[in-house]
Design a protein around this nucleic acid. Structure first.
Lengths: 163, 163
DNA sequence: CGGACTTAGTTGCATTTTGCAACCACCTGT
DNA sequence: ACAGGTGGTTGCAAAATGCAACTAAGTCCG
């Protein structure tokens, strides 16, 4: 019986959080994006218990975030869990955590640095406006009720994301 | 006695996840960024139990992500939990979840839409290279060991974040 | 062929974390 | 004085997690 503490919130953050803030899930996705996509690799590299890993992978498969594929590598059949487009689109969440962790929780400097193939440079992920390309910062964004807002959200009107 | 399942991983994603993937923490931060910073407001809007809310706020304060301030609003003293710079720098994580949720978990359209004050447009958060401004996608980034890498990470060399 | 080893899990039980309801101290308005 | 709100704390039950043991299938080695 799955538990859905956020289910009656009409909120995209809540709905994403419901999946991605389950314990171990971000670490599992890190492994998948690093190309370590086999059950035993994930288990070894994260330290997650096998029953939990089994459960989390099942959730990700059920949500269409990863698919379980059986490949044939030199005569042996191996299982891989590979991210779908829906999963790949969650990479910004990982990158945002990576950036924050590098800045605030890496006493000896970043354990890993990210390189951008297109320009060859070491990068730090940055969140911008997809329309004008300008920085998105605490002070320069507003939230307004959208098409999917419920009555309460509509009447609440506009918010500043931060004050 | 706090529980630290990720503590022996030299990984910035793990260290960020340890804080931000605790249950309710993302919803609490959402409230704080929406300007609803009082204990009772957060409780009402998220539905979190008061003992849990108390615990999570304490963790955020201990980590220096928010500060508890006592303000004087027309004669009444009210407590507010307000994000520090360290907290505001976590906004990209929220925005990334918001984008993903709007795209994949908003059957009636986004409950809220984000507007960029600088250009006046409705926006979707996008993650880019801070050097050249190009998109960061699954296929065009690489991770290499950084200054804080441990021996095992150094010897592992370069990874593709996704294949 | 038998035995040891690896992979991909499942099962059962103990420990931790969470949810819930009740309670408390303090403040404010009537 | 008393009702109601704020900002919590406490105790107990329910759920999630961690751990070790186990299974089933396939591989490697002699």
């Amino acid at each position: 019986m799955p538990f859905r503490p956020f289910e009656n919130q009409n909120c995209s953050i809540a709905r994403a959080a419901e999946i991605f803030t389950e314990r171990w899930t971000m670490l599992i996705l890190r492994e998948l994006f690093l190309g370590r996509q086999r059950f035993s690799e994930i288990k070894r590299n994260t330290g997650v218990a096998s029953n939990i890993l089994s459960d989390r992978l099942q959730v990700l498969v059920d949500q269409g975030i990863v698919v379980r594929v059986e490949e044939d590598a030199d005569g042996q059949s191996v299982e891989r869990y590979v991210p779908t487009k829906k999963g790949i689109d969650a990479q910004p969440i990982l990158l945002a955590m990576l950036s924050w962790g590098d800045k605030y929780a890496a006493p000896d400097g970043p354990p890993r640095v990210l390189y951008h193939e297109d320009c060859g440079h070491e990068i730090h992920a940055k969140v911008v406006c997809d329309h004008c390309g300008g920085d998105l910062k605490a002070g320069n964004t507003r939230l307004r009720p959208g098409p999917g807002a419920n009555r309460r959200q509509k009447s609440a009107g506009e918010f500043l994301p931060h004050r």
